[in-house]
Simulated scan of single mutants.
Amino acid sequence: MDYPNDQAPGAPVRSGIPEHGRIPKYYAVKARIALLVDELAEGNALPTERDLAERYEVARETVRQALRDLLLEGKLRRQGRGTVAAGPKLEQPLSLVSYTEGVRRQGRTPGRNLIGLDRFPCNAALAEETGLRPGEPVWHLERVLLADEERMGLESTYVAAERVPHLDTDFDPDSSFYSYLHDRLGIAFGDADERLETVLATPREALLIGTPPALPMLLIHRISRDTEGRPLERVRSLYRGDRFSFSTRLRDSSSTRLGDSST
């Protein structure tokens, strides 16, 4: 199949044009605005809706629909009463790497705002999911995730109080929980089970993250264990779909098995 010469890696096949060739007017405007955004530095303002409508000779509602798509895709973001170029998304590896390390690798400054730190008896549902004992004390740590002071997501962590008995006094909520476990307590991560899905934020979550409830979110559930296989934490991490992406490296397990069988 032949593709247009300007087909960029990772772009929609045939630039999103349907097979019948009829392109919705808003989509054609969106494509032209996207080219305009590519020429702007991060944080630079986009022309007003009125200016864009006059430039492309379309109704302002057509421009609004195009801008809504670009906002949801993360190419634009609201700033005050205007719209600015958002810059590239943050890319987080799907691995046992802390949020702090992942953000710093991209030259951004990580941070967190504490929402709450509570201690309560482990209920039956949490015990079944994590392997903890029903009724044993559990910490619940909830924080808003930041990058360069911009709110990026919401993280909810459950951990047995026995493993971190002084979490409320020894831990800086703005710092990395993984570093605290490793550097202060000598606890190392062994492995984890992780599941990724797309969701919409609840009204409470949208308020804490500072996004519209209709914005798609990336949700990660993680059950972590230490090097001895003991349950360590249960984490629910909610990331903004317009500002985050995830990456991983895959290997062909069949080639590994063939290699093992030949030795």
Score class of each variant (00 low, 15 high):
84 V>Y: 05
72 L>V: 13
134 P>L: 02
136 E>P: 04
3 Y>C: 03
238 L>Y: 03
253 S>G: 06
65 Q>R: 15
255 S>W: 05
189 F>P: 00
79 Q>K: 13
53 A>W: 05
261 S>N: 05
67 L>K: 11
119 R>D: 03
162 E>S: 13
149 E>N: 14
167 L>E: 10
203 P>W: 02
68 R>L: 12
67 L>R: 13
122 C>F: 03
235 V>I: 15
86 A>W: 04
195 R>I: 02
230 R>H: 14
127 A>S: 11
210 G>L: 07
39 E>Y: 01
48 T>K: 10
124 A>M: 12
181 L>C: 12
114 L>I: 07
5 N>K: 10
240 R>K: 10
195 R>C: 08
189 F>V: 09
12 P>E: 03
63 V>T: 03
171 F>H: 09
127 A>H: 03
257 R>K: 05
46 L>M: 10
238 L>A: 04
214 A>M: 08
171 F>I: 03
241 G>P: 05
60 R>N: 04
21 G>P: 08
103 V>Q: 05
6 D>P: 00
142 E>I: 00
156 S>I: 09
256 T>C: 03
153 G>P: 06
58 V>G: 07
223 I>Q: 13
223 I>S: 14
15 S>G: 09
161 A>Y: 09
248 T>C: 09
259 G>T: 06
12 P>Y: 01
143 R>N: 08
207 L>C: 00
227 T>W: 01
220 I>T: 13
23 I>P: 00
114 L>N: 07
229 G>Y: 09
189 F>A: 11
138 V>L: 14
203 P>D: 12
75 K>C: 00
87 G>C: 09
174 D>M: 08
185 L>Y: 05
84 V>R: 04
188 A>Y: 11
156 S>E: 10
237 S>P: 01
181 L>T: 05
140 H>L: 12
106 Q>T: 04
173 P>D: 01
71 L>I: 09
256 T>I: 11
68 R>Q: 14
58 V>T: 12
137 P>L: 07
101 E>D: 13
123 N>V: 04
160 A>P: 10
166 H>C: 06
28 A>G: 11
49 E>T: 15
1 M>A: 14
204 R>L: 13
